[in-house]
Simulated scan of single mutants.
Amino acid sequence: MDPLVDRFGRVHRDLRISLTDRCSLRCTYCMPEQGVPWLAKPTLLSTDELLRLTEVAVSLGIVEVRLTGGEPLLRRDLVEVVAGISSMQGVDGPVEVSMTTNALGLDMMAVPLVEAGMARVNISLDTLDRDTFVRMARRDRLDDTLEGIRAAADAGLAPVKLNTVLLRDVNDVEAPQLLAFALEHGYELRFIEQMPLDAGHTWHRESMVTGQEVLDRLRTAYHLEPVPQRGSAPAELFLVDGGPATVGVIASVSSPFCGTCDRVRLTADGQLRNCLFAAAETDLRTPLRDGAGDDELAALFRASIGAKLPGHGINEPGFLQPPRNMSAIGG
């Protein structure tokens, strides 16, 4: 089949699949401490349904699948899902499978996931201070997170990428320390601007730590040199002290990269989203369960991508935060 190309010429090759909306942490920039309305179990895609939709996406040119959540490690069939996707053949060869995780329990799962075909992981790490971790994640699990990170590296999930969200007057002073930690252990660090996707709707532009502020803080301790040819990658990379190590900044709000976006998202309950901030979704679960063929499902993929807007609109007057929060969408 022809690839997934929108009306602005963007070719979509990256599928983000949320496996669950549940999470083992309650990070303040993502979820409230309690009272989260979970997706009803009957609405969640089964293993076979998830793999069927992924196969259709791969036939349309998807070459990379990122498993997200919520927390994907909470999904009991995770290894089976990874094995099924990694066995699929895309236009460039086997589909690459990666995962975004908080690493809680990864110490027990890293080796089985590698054996199933997982290539790499992105792990959330916002602080190296225990008290700050508890303040941000509302759980005392820093040691478990660090153990999961070590296990990922030991199992060969390379490169291990660390995702950090800096919050003003909470952990923003830790930027140089976090980079030092990543450099010491050979991890790749990415700072991500806080986005208006929290369930509590507490995001305010004025309090957001911008990508430029992150760079300014890092430059108090390191020399940073931009890496050219960013392509469709969300992170702008910088060589640290001449390289080869790099640090990345994902400035989705202050410096959008929508013009090169190649990503599409499938929620745990089978809704296709052509943008992280989309107000509308395309229901794939219902036609799938009603017996739709691959051609019909492929047409729904194409219709969704065909309706994709030129940008996420965060900086436009009248922008409204999506009804779903990040844990229900999948990052």
Rank of each mutant, 00 (worst) to 15 (best):
residue 238 F to L: 06
residue 214 V to I: 15
residue 255 S to D: 14
residue 308 K to D: 02
residue 5 V to H: 00
residue 254 S to E: 01
residue 108 M to E: 15
residue 154 D to G: 05
residue 303 A to L: 13
residue 264 V to G: 03
residue 196 P to W: 08
residue 228 P to A: 15
residue 60 L to F: 11
residue 182 A to N: 03
residue 234 P to E: 07
residue 238 F to N: 05
residue 50 L to P: 11
residue 180 A to Y: 03
residue 253 V to W: 11
residue 95 V to D: 10
residue 307 A to K: 13
residue 165 V to S: 06
residue 304 S to K: 10
residue 247 V to G: 10
residue 226 P to M: 14
residue 35 G to V: 02
residue 322 P to F: 10
residue 94 P to A: 10
residue 229 Q to P: 09
residue 144 D to T: 02
residue 88 M to C: 13
residue 126 D to N: 13
residue 127 T to Q: 12
residue 295 D to G: 11
residue 170 V to F: 01
residue 149 I to T: 11
residue 21 D to C: 09
residue 11 V to Y: 02
residue 267 T to M: 11
residue 303 A to I: 04
residue 104 L to M: 08
residue 237 L to P: 06
residue 257 F to N: 05
residue 155 A to D: 08
residue 86 S to R: 03
residue 282 T to W: 01
residue 50 L to V: 13
residue 148 G to I: 14
residue 105 G to M: 07
residue 42 P to Q: 10
residue 91 V to N: 02
residue 273 R to S: 04
residue 303 A to P: 09
residue 115 E to R: 14
residue 167 L to Q: 10
residue 309 L to I: 04
residue 112 P to V: 07
residue 317 P to D: 09
residue 229 Q to T: 09
residue 265 R to D: 09
residue 93 G to E: 06
residue 47 T to N: 00
residue 24 S to W: 01
residue 313 G to V: 11
residue 98 S to P: 02
residue 234 P to M: 03
residue 206 E to I: 00
residue 61 G to D: 05
residue 251 A to Y: 00
residue 93 G to V: 14
residue 275 C to D: 14
residue 158 A to E: 14
residue 29 Y to H: 15
residue 283 D to A: 01
residue 290 D to H: 10
residue 311 G to I: 12
residue 40 A to D: 15
residue 175 A to P: 10
residue 267 T to G: 09
residue 116 A to P: 08
residue 186 G to N: 14
residue 160 V to N: 09
residue 67 L to E: 03
residue 293 G to E: 15
residue 198 D to L: 01
residue 83 A to F: 01
residue 159 P to Q: 03
residue 235 A to K: 13
residue 91 V to D: 11
residue 32 P to L: 14
residue 100 T to L: 08
residue 51 L to H: 05
residue 314 I to E: 04
residue 176 P to W: 06
residue 148 G to V: 15
residue 40 A to L: 15
residue 214 V to Y: 08
residue 170 V to I: 13
residue 280 A to Y: 06
residue 15 L to T: 03
residue 119 A to D: 09
residue 75 R to Y: 04
residue 213 E to R: 13
residue 319 F to E: 08
residue 278 A to D: 12
residue 54 T to N: 00
residue 165 V to Y: 03
residue 224 L to H: 13
residue 95 V to R: 02
residue 178 L to P: 07
residue 19 L to F: 04
residue 235 A to I: 04
residue 172 D to M: 05
residue 22 R to N: 03
residue 7 R to G: 07
residue 278 A to L: 12
residue 297 L to M: 05
residue 147 E to R: 15
residue 5 V to A: 01
residue 230 R to Q: 10
residue 221 A to K: 04
residue 76 R to F: 04
residue 243 G to A: 10
residue 192 I to W: 07
residue 210 T to G: 00
residue 92 D to A: 13
residue 270 G to Y: 04
